[in-house]
């Protein structure tokens, strides 16, 4: 069973969370190219190994949680500089 360390609720089952993945920076509509916009829409890094990503604690405190997860083993540790 995968548990996510919620800084507000403690370790909770992964089924309480929604996966949002690595955060992508939305380009400014004013000065991005069409290609840049398509890259933002469709392309995501898909690495094998540790990824910093956010999860939303939907069935709990309803806050976003930043963690580092190894996509091979699903081992999760709190992200550096995560709140609390």
């Amino acid at each position: 069973m995968i548990q996510i360390p919620c800084p507000w609720c403690g370790p909770r089952n992964v089924t309480e969370f929604h996966h949002y993945g690595p955060s992508a920076t939305r380009p400014s509509v004013a000065d991005t190219t069409v290609e840049g916009w398509h890259r933002y829409l469709y392309f995501r890094a898909n690495p094998l190994g540790p990824v910093e990503e956010s999860w939303y604690h939907a069935a709990g405190c309803r806050r976003f949680v930043a963690v580092v997860r190894d996509t091979h083993s699903n081992q999760i540790t709190p992200a550096e500089g995560a709140e609390r």
Binding site: M1, I2, N13, V14, T15, H18, H19, G21, N46, L48, T71, H72, S73, N74
Partner: peptide, 12 residues
């Protein structure tokens, strides 16, 4: 409902 390369089954 999340990305992963793990092929481990889950109880859920």
């Amino acid at each position: 409902p999340f990305t992963s390369y793990s092929t481990r089954g889950s109880l859920e």
